[in-house]
Nucleic acid binder design. Structure first.
Length: 562
RNA sequence: UGGGGUGUCGUCAAGCGGUAAGACACAGGCCUUUGGAGCCUGCAUUCGGAGGUUCGAAUCCUCCCGCCCCAGCCA
């Protein structure tokens, strides 16, 4: 089952749940929710929360709701709601009919606020925003009580009703919880729970001019949905006493419990929604699903599989200490999945002409090649072979360093799926001295298996028949997210946009059997890594390939060592 | 200098008083018609530091240090 397998290691949360199960706190129910604010596309950090919340629910036979936490109309939109729905589904999770919107609770929340006023636990404060800040005190000094703190219930009710009715301009009044202005926890110093904001809401339009704040709306939304565990990130730890306070005033037991975990950080990656929005709005990238983006949509386009992302989330674990996950773990997860799922093919990115001198001109053979080296279920494909081939320019070196196993003067290598060939000569451009063509001879007895005389052939290179190959477009993203650490520095954007890291290569040749590659297909091209046919830019018959997994340049390391 | 968290290998992360799991990374080897697959081996005498309790401490106690979060009418 997808949900269970995706559950990250979450021992401290499991412990809490199992204690509750023992004491039968919630009658054995486990109910979680994934509550994004629809003000951006979900990213890999959200995936961690999605896997956690749905995973926990599945582990205990419970439920997980999807809830749009849309209490601040500015920045929220239907487009983002759609992206969340789409991406969570794509990741493999199902909330069935439990899709909710905090905005659907506006009427309930309003009534809760009225109730709080009647309890004498909330008041309308008419201080200006800057005054409220001033009265709040500082980290080390207690705050001062608002002069409006002791308004009568009747006056508060009257004012709050008129706030809703639109009688006041934005900002002239707010509703505050009456808690403790001298609390060492600043969150508890009479927090604002309702504000006037004349900003049309993407769902409720202009129906409301007052909107509940997160602290008020979230815990009560959880309560309305009978959530048992409200799992959120660490920065809300200071808000937990407020969460408990509000719920204690208005909701009978059993009440939802907030549990915090550390949010995801990945090396070289920006996961701040504010910054991602900036990248999109300033056109630094081509939208939220740009393959360079750490969004689910971007990763999907780049070729990541839901499985790989789920595995990643399961492997990183869930704890309370700040973390910075090495991107190599993410890459390892895709490689692992794709190694099993991706059919193999051959491609050449930087073509170098290779002529087999002793192979008859005009002759064409077709080799039956396995689409997967380990799994015969993938079947085979026919690959044409002829006298003139293209090989990867890197696969030939005139002065090969030690340990180089590919082609060079005097050497013999195997053409993947084909014959062993032996170096015969090289042709250079007279002016530049650049190698333009390699000449080889082939050994006809080596098509299947090693040569009869027992000589060993170490190197294997891939190739494509020049006359039969098809030209396609490949986009190389050397690493998924080319953003240097520390990501908090402003110049991160410059690096992100560095054209050197976004090289686009257009003269790639892909063997003909691939020219009908369907959109969204993933291939591992021999020795080059995993590629996906880009589902947005590719056309049938001429796919555009994104390279999705960087292969470690181990050869470069060997060469560096000498 | 207030409050809330958190510190175990390069990076994550188990461990809950009985003598440091696992993963990624890294290194070496074997094997292979992708060097990037597969297999094998190595990789924390020590758990932020210093004391203490105990036969025994990463785990309990004391003090100290580092890092993160909180002063939006954001979430």
């Amino acid at each position: 089952m997808i949900e269970t397998e995706a559950a990250p290691q979450n021992d401290f949360i499991r412990e809490i749940i199992e204690d509750d199960l023992k004491t039968n706190k919630n009658n054995g129910r486990v109910a979680t929710r994934f509550p994004p604010e629809p003000n951006g596309y979900p990213h890999i950090g959200h995936a961690k929360s999605v896997c956690l919340n749905f995973g926990i629910a599945a582990q205990y036979g419970g439920t997980c709701n999807l809830r749009m936490d849309d209490t601040d109309p500015s920045g929220e939109s239907l487009e983002y709601v759609d992206s969340i729905i789409n991406d969570v589904h794509w990741l493999g999770f199902d909330w069935q009919d439990r899709l909710f919107y905090a905005s659907d609770y506006f009427e309930d929340l309003y009534r809760f606020a009225v109730q709080l006023i009647k309890l004498g636990k909330a008041y309308v404060c008419s201080l200006r925003a800057d005054q409220i800040r001033e009265y709040r005190g500082t980290l080390t000094e207690p705050g001062k009580e608002s002069p409006f703190r002791n308004r009568s219930v009747e006056e508060n009710l009257d004012l709050f009703t008129r706030m809703r009715a639109g009688e006041f301009a934005d900002g002239v009044h707010v509703l505050r919880a009456k808690i403790d202005m001298s609390s060492p926890n600043i969150t508890m110093r009479d927090p604002v729970i309702y504000r006037i904001k004349r900003s049309p809401h993407y769902r409720t339009g202009t129906q409301w001019v007052i909107y509940p704040m997160y602290d008020f709306a979230h815990c009560l939304s959880d309560s309305l949905e009978h959530i048992t565990y409200s799992i959120c990130t660490l920065e809300f730890e200071n808000n937990r006493p407020l969460y408990d306070w509000i719920v204690a005033q208005l909701i009978p037991e059993p009440r939802p419990r907030q549990i915090e975990f550390a949010r995801l950080n990945v090396t070289y990656t920006i996961l701040s929604k504010r910054r991602l929005i900036e990248l999109v709005e300033n056109n630094h990238v081509n939208g939220w699903d740009d393959p360079r983006m750490p969004t689910i949509a971007g990763m999907r386009r780049r070729g990541y599989t839901p499985q790989a992302i789920r595995t990643f989330c399961a492997k990183i674990g869930v704890a309370k200490s700040d973390n910075l996950i090495d991107m190599s773990l993410l890459e390892s997860c895709v490689r692992d999945d794709l190694n099993e799922q991706a059919p193999r093919a051959m491609a050449v990115l930087r073509p170098l002409r290779l002529v087999i001198d002793n192979y008859p001109e005009g002759r064409v053979e077709e080799f039956e090649c396995a689409n997967h080296p380990q799994n015969p279920d993938f079947g085979t494909r026919k690959v044409p072979f002829s006298r003139v081939l293209y090989i990867e320019a890197d696969d030939f070196m005139e002065e090969p360093p030690r340990k180089y196993k590919r082609l060079g003067p005097g050497r013999e290598v195997r053409l993947r799926n084909g014959y062993a060939i032996k170096y015969a000569g090289v042709v250079k451009d007279e002016k530049t001295g650049e190698i333009t063509e390699i000449h080889c001879t082939y050994d006809p007895d080596t098509l299947h298996g090693a040569p009869a005389d027992g000589r060993k052939i170490d190197g294997v290179i891939h190739w494509v028949s020049a006359a039969h190959s098809v030209k396609s477009e490949v986009r190389l993203y050397d690493r998924l997210f080319r953003i240097p650490n520390p990501v908090t520095q402003g110049d991160a954007f410059l690096e992100f946009l560095n054209p050197d890291s976004l090289e686009i290569i257009t003269n790639c040749r892909v063997e003909s059997s691939l020219k009908d590659a369907a959109s969204g297909s993933r291939y591992q091209f021999e020795r080059l890594g995993y590629f996906t046919a880009d589902s947005v830019d590719s056309k049938p018959g001429n796919p555009v390939f994104n390279r999705i997994v960087p292969l470690r340049d181990s050869w470069a390391k060997v060469a560096a060592k000498g």
